[in-house]
Design a binder for these strands. Structure first.
Lengths: 255, 255
DNA sequence: AACGCCATTCGACAATGTCGAACGCTGGTC
DNA sequence: GACCAGCGTTCGACATTGTCGAATGGCGTT
């Protein structure tokens, strides 16, 4: 691999470590986690601090992520074509369906939420743009799993965490679900991620016809799966129409 | 400066460049902007691509920010103590005042929005968490300018951009406004950033009594400055109460 | 069909980051 | 109150590693 800058890879590893740990970490913890000398780790951390990517808690001496990253992340959203093209359609889908809408894209074998529209009328929700969702327990994830080979590759070998009683935890069950998605063109999920919640998703295709993301509605299982666990077909149609409209905007129509 | 890792600084400079330019940049543009050899720039870019911090547009060959940054930025919000402590108070302030609420912290001589609560009842607003606001044209910025010496230092020498007819563009006018903030303990702004809009802000103090951020309400100038350009004092009191409550939560009371 | 732009590759040089040991601080403990 | 342990930090020598500039190859344009 030519031109791979070692120190940058290490810096990125530190940032990811800080993001996972969801808290402050000390130089010692980081250096042992990554197998680096304490002095080396300190040098990288100090540099990251200079550029604002990490901050040091004066009291404990430990390090945490820095404010500059928030701005960079937001700037990414501004450039992201999938999101900017999808925003208008997402709003329309939310008001038509009456449910919360999310748009996701694959990232490291998970689903990154790049856009989130609150459920109309209900205002006590927290925005989760930037959150990572599991692939195997969400409708968004199943869609990406069905159409994006990279996601499937990165999931191979990972353990499927059980969130509720209905979460698909065996590879066989997941394979069957994914095959169903490929047949029908949409994915559903009822109480597999959170009790009482359900979601419906469809793929978004970019230029060349490749799947670049997915769009979903999420809400109470009583509304999405009203009659004895059977999905509300009109909601599925809403989601599919939105996904097709966005795909057309992204230039998937020409293929 | 011991242990400053050059390549990481350069990588950060590239990311900031991509964030500013708000679009895709080629290897050539980046290398000339930073005064680096094209080969060097390419190596750093390829590494940043490996770790997901940048993505390459297959069609044009140009580079843009990557999805991983969005997740890192969101992780920063989870750790940020100012934000997590302030969320509940911000919601209360929004419903009491009926206006949109923002919480800001200083970053590179600007104001970084770390939290944003929509105005109640009105749902057609775009979330601007992660956005950078100018210090000289917002109430949030004036507060930080008045109490945070670092912000003032970084602003020195910068030109004050004119957004509206009422924007304070001369250092003298800004100095006078800042002095007023220090006297009264709060900052206001009427149509200095956007026509028809106004805002009111107060400082948030952390452990030790130092100002770590500011909280503001923003909305129509007709509501915030109702009678002939005179501020609505009850709104100022709401903001000040919120700022004091958050400061107390952060441990500023002990000093 | 030929040009020019641009991302990419390559190899040699030395600048640069790495390592491990030693320092000094803070907080807890006997 | 003095010791100890753990932490972040500093330091200097070594060679690994990133840097540079020229050369390459592909793509779109003229």
């Amino acid at each position: 691999m030519p031109g791979s800058v070692q120190s940058i890879e290490r810096a990125a590893a530190i940032l990811r470590l800080l993001a996972r740990g969801s808290g402050r970490l000390g130089v010692g913890e980081i250096s042992t986690s990554l197998g680096l000398a304490k002095g080396t780790t300190h040098g990288i951390l100090k540099t990251l601090q200079d550029v604002g990517f990490v901050e040091q808690d004066k009291a404990s001496g430990k390090y945490q992520l820095g404010a500059t990253l928030l701005h960079l992340g937001t700037s990414y959203l501004d450039v992201n074509e999938l999101r900017s093209r999808a925003i208008n359609w997402a709003d329309a889908l939310a008001s038509r369906s009456g449910e919360a809408v999310r748009i996701g894209t694959p990232l490291d074998g998970k689903v990154l939420v790049v856009h989130h529209v609150f459920r109309p009328d209900d205002s006590l929700q927290t925005l989760d743009t930037g959150t990572l969702l599991p692939v195997h327990a969400t409708a968004l994830g199943k869609v990406l799993l069905a159409y994006d080979s990279g996601v499937a590759a990165e999931l191979a070998g990972a353990t499927l965490e059980q969130y509720t009683r209905r979460t698909l935890v065996t590879p066989a069950a997941l394979r069957k679900a994914v095959a169903e998605v490929r047949e029908t063109g949409w994915a559903g999920e009822a109480e597999e991620f959170a009790a009482g919640q359900a979601s419906i998703a469809a793929p978004i295709r970019g230029y060349g016809g490749y799947v670049v993301g997915a769009i979903s509605i999420a809400g109470s299982v009583d509304r999405l799966y009203p009659s004895a666990g059977r999905v509300d077909q009109s909601l599925v149609t809403f989601v599919q129409n939105a996904s097709r409209a966005i795909s057309r905007d992204l230039g998937a129509g020409r293929w």
